[in-house]
């Protein structure tokens, strides 16, 4: 950011000269081009026939020769069909089946916790909050395998020095089901959700809470009637963030759903499978990858404001 010396409105020639020698501006657009080119090339290639994709780069798209009956949507037709080997439609639904619950459930749980940390004063609040938020950095790998085992057969604790075994979590037969993924995502998202929502909720004016208190509201009513409606922007930010994150996740899905019912796997896993299949179906990979990216891109472009706010929460210290 600069404070610029103001200049008089200049003539056209002046403006032209200035824009030509304005290196920073050039550099910016060079960056933009470099950043957009890869995605663009994927998009362009996804409309080309298999032979064209194999024989020339995407920049030769206008010189393509196509056989009769060829339509630019051919690849997409295959990819978005229910054909079992190459069709991804099933997995798109699966991705949705994972992403939507994984977004909604953490919101419900975390917003209560965030409110409690922000506006209910109890002993040990600060250390507990710091501990909870510190969990944000824990790598998922550390919890993944035991989680998988819990979903597979329940969690049983053998008490040391005695032969007793306690069943902490019964065997719910969740392995290979969407719920295993959803519950895992929820758990991993909670620290960040609590952090984000707490950041917002704690900055609501204290007088609001106090006047509600004077009017006789207890914490629950304050939360439901005051805080929740006012936190909608923060909830929206988190929702977008979490939706994108879970739609794009590969690790947890692969951990919980590998080797299970192929109808249940989300798009990321589908793409990885497609990607391992060299040669015959590589041309479908472009369309498939773009189909996978389409939903998050739409969500991103239409709601970027909230996404950005989610990122900025707590990151910018004034």
């Amino acid at each position: 950011m600069t404070a610029r010396v103001p200049r008089r409105s200049a003539s056209v020639i002046d403006k032209l000269y200035r824009s030509l020698t304005n290196v920073p501006l050039w550099a910016l657009w060079v960056f933009v081009v470099i950043w957009t080119l890869p995605t663009l090339s994927l998009l362009v290639n996804s409309f080309r026939s298999r032979d064209n994709q194999r024989n020339s780069g995407f920049w030769r798209v206008f010189g393509d020769e196509n056989p009769e009956g060829f339509s630019v949507f051919d690849n997409y037709e295959v990819v978005l069909s229910t054909e079992s080997t190459n069709g991804m439609l099933q997995s798109l639904i699966s991705s949705l089946a994972i992403a939507v619950p994984s977004t909604i459930i953490p919101i419900a749980i975390a917003s209560f916790a965030a409110y409690a940390f922000a506006w209910i004063d109890f002993k040990g609040r600060k250390p507990l909050f710091i501990a909870t938020v510190a969990l944000m950095s824990i790598p998922m790998q550390v919890a993944l395998i035991p989680l998988l085992r819990t979903y597979l057969g329940g969690a049983h604790l053998t008490l040391p020095f005695s032969n007793r075994t306690l069943s902490l979590v019964p065997d719910l037969d969740l392995a290979g089901s969407t719920w295993a993924v959803v519950l895992s995502h929820t758990g991993f998202a909670l620290p960040f959700a609590i952090f984000l929502l707490h950041n917002y909720i704690s900055q609501l004016p204290g007088e609001l809470m106090e006047s509600a208190r004077v009017d006789g509201a207890d914490h629950f009513h304050t939360y439901m009637k005051l805080v929740l409606p006012l936190s909608v922007p923060a909830l929206a930010s988190f929702a977008i963030f979490q939706f994108l994150w879970t739609w794009n996740d590969y690790l947890i899905a692969a951990t919980m759903l590998s080797g299970g019912d192929p109808d249940v796997i989300p798009t990321t896993m589908r793409i990885v499978n497609l990607a391992g299949d060299f040669g015959r179906t590589e041309h479908l990979l472009t369309a498939g990858a773009f189909a996978q990216a389409f939903v998050p891109l739409v969500v991103f472009f239409s709601l970027q404001r909230y996404f950005v706010r989610g990122l900025l929460a707590g990151s910018v210290k004034g």
């Binding site: 994108l244 996978q292 990216a293 991103f300 970027q304 950005v308």
Partner: peptide
């Protein structure tokens, strides 16, 4: 900023 919306899997493919 757009690449952030794309999964890492997708980005690797790209």
């Amino acid at each position: 900023f757009m690449p952030m919306a794309i999964s890492m899997v997708g980005a690797s493919i790209i």
